[in-house]
């Protein structure tokens, strides 16, 4: 299980690195899909179908939006030249990342094994969740009863995002009403 997850994670990292260096914007968007769909497989392996459904639908929809936006705009990326500054910067980042890796290894040595509960609260939810909430699907019970504030926040974030996109993109409608006034 952990080896399989590791393989998928490595694939996702490779896809995101390719996304950064793709010459064509369309192939960059498509290779970015590797990250999202790899995450879907991770969720299915970890037995989280709720998240898998949301992730696969949202991934497809964002792919459609990005392609619909890109297909009429310019697809060429600016050509980059590998200068001496870039090499020094990259090697510095690699050194920092190696330091982080050592730190993470030292920090996670004493943790609970993979797949076991760490907190008493989640154990209580799993054992007696469907009784007080009356919902057979435990995830929905937690999302909309115990943790309804979180759901309100998520819905508000989406609402704000839609309002922001409409405000930024609809320049013409604004000027038209001003002229009419």
């Amino acid at each position: 299980m952990e080896i399989l997850l590791g393989i998928i994670l490595v694939l996702m990292i490779a896809g995101s690195i390719y996304t950064l260096h793709a010459g064509d914007l369309l192939s960059a968007v498509i290779s970015y899909g590797i990250v999202g769909f790899g995450l879907v497989i991770c969720f299915l392996l970890l037995e989280a179908p709720d998240l898998a459904i949301i992730q696969i639908v949202v991934e497809t929809i964002t792919l459609v939006i990005m392609i619909a936006v890109i297909i009429d705009s310019s697809r060429d990326e600016l050509t980059k030249v590998l200068s001496r500054k870039t090499v020094i910067f990259t090697s510095f980042i690699i050194v920092v990342l190696a330091g982080f890796a050592v730190y993470f290894y030292l920090a996670t040595r004493g943790m609970v094994p993979f797949g076991e509960h760490m907190m008493r609260m989640s154990q209580a939810y799993v054992e007696s969740g469907s009784g007080p909430t009356g919902s057979t699907n435990l995830v929905t019970g937690v999302l909309l009863d115990y943790r309804a504030y979180d759901t309100l926040g998520e819905a508000t974030i989406l609402f704000t995002a839609a309002i922001g996109v409409i405000t930024v993109m609809r320049m013409k409608g604004k000027t038209k009403t001003l002229e009419e006034i």
Partner: peptide, 21 residues
């Protein structure tokens, strides 16, 4: 069926939006 089977408001709403797309 969000309270009975996997899924719920977020996933179902995204699927409905996908039909319109």
């Amino acid at each position: 069926h969000g309270h009975l089977t996997p899924g719920g408001g977020f996933g179902g709403g995204a699927i409905v939006a996908g039909a319109f797309y």
